[in-house]
Nucleic acid binder design. Structure first.
Lengths: 202, 202
DNA sequence: AAGTTAACCGACACTCATGTCGGTTGCGCG
DNA sequence: CGCGCAACCGACATGAGTGTCGGTTAACTT
């Protein structure tokens, strides 16, 4: 976990190690079950060092959430060109999301599985992340919807967007138990449903 | 919460009151953040009474999970006739699920939102519930899939089933924030996507 | 009506978490 | 070189939650 067991790190470097450890432990055990002691051990420092870098467990979680959300946005953004047909763009986005889920499963879990909603501020931040994602997808789909005569603002359309997003999460979750399934298979399946529903495969 | 403040209940009756209170608190705060003291207060008894009826907090949660899962199966089962076209049966099922989510939001949350997966036995039970639901839906869709030339056992098809199930959950979750949207709108939206994808509305 | 079961409770012991404080020392910088 | 910041740590105080034990009494049984 740590390469140099004796040397003393610079603050920012240590913070990076800590948030990485926190990501793992939070994702695995959930917020309440994770203890600062365990995170500290995973980061290779004494427990009290945590308080030299983060004022509280809550703030630490919020920092990790922000960090990973930024990572997600960058990851997806770097992989969609915005060029090609609507269908091609959609496929790129779906593929990028599954790519993220594959390369950073803990980040996906922490960001989108429901983990500890009891704290008001945590709840707010998590809801904001979810909303931002919904908006981004809705914007991508808006044009296509208008073309087929559906108002993207109507509740039914919003519900469909929610369906798609959480459905993708569900597939990603299921994928963790079936890692042998190739990513392309997932993308094909999702694209099939989105293109033609349960109708004949195109 | 309790009508007769002085009288002493029979064991089974008290257990019912306790599990009802536990359902509320667990659903609201999650497993770890919920304390037995709080649940006891909501049930109108002293904290130690909990141990006269359940040996531990863990077992209490498991009991609530089983109870609510049974309630879900009964609720859905009572509302789908199994008659009519495939599409009609599907619509009935979708409508029944949203009906359950509407009439028992805490049960839906406890059963399907990820709450405290750290305990191995809890994890197993929750995964079993999820799998049973997946199997039921897969069985319902298997015939239709075969008709359009898709093997229901292939990974892509399984992934699509997961997509549909978790997508429904996502819509139900979103619905809690938009309760003014009528249930029929949700059913229409889901049926639209399942029938024809993002293609033209049929 | 008396006896027995079991529903109920208060007090206690214990564990484990968070967060604080003061001291030590590696390391960059003048 | 040596000075000082800050990275690091051990010991402590505190609080919250779980689970136990023994006693009390309602209410069912016969």
């Amino acid at each position: 976990m740590e390469s140099a067991p004796k040397s003393r790190m610079r603050g920012s470097a240590r913070r990076t190690v800590i948030t990485a450890a926190a990501l793992k432990v939070f994702a695995e055990k959930g917020y309440h079950a994770a203890s600062l002691g365990e995170i500290a051990k995973a980061a290779g420092v004494a427990r009290t060092v945590m308080y030299d870098h983060f004022p509280s467990k809550r703030v630490l979680l919020l920092a990790v959430l922000q960090e990973q959300n930024t990572a997600l946005v960058e990851y997806i953004g770097a992989r969609i060109t915005g060029r090609g047909t609507a269908r091609e763009r959609m496929r790129d986005t779906v593929d990028a999301y599954f790519g993220f889920a594959q390369s950073r499963p803990e980040a996906r879990k922490l960001l989108f599985d429901a983990v500890s909603e009891d704290d008001p501020e945590i709840r707010t931040v998590r809801w904001g992340i979810r909303e931002a994602r919904t908006k981004a997808v809705a914007a991508m789909l808006a044009q296509d919807m208008r073309e087929i005569g559906v108002d993207p603002a109507e509740p039914g359309a919003e519900a469909v967007v929610e369906f798609i997003i959480t459905g993708m999460d569900g597939v990603a979750q299921w994928w963790e138990h079936r890692p042998e399934v190739p990513r392309s298979t997932l993308v094909e399946g999702v694209m099939w449903l989105l293109s033609s529903g349960l109708g004949p495969r195109s």
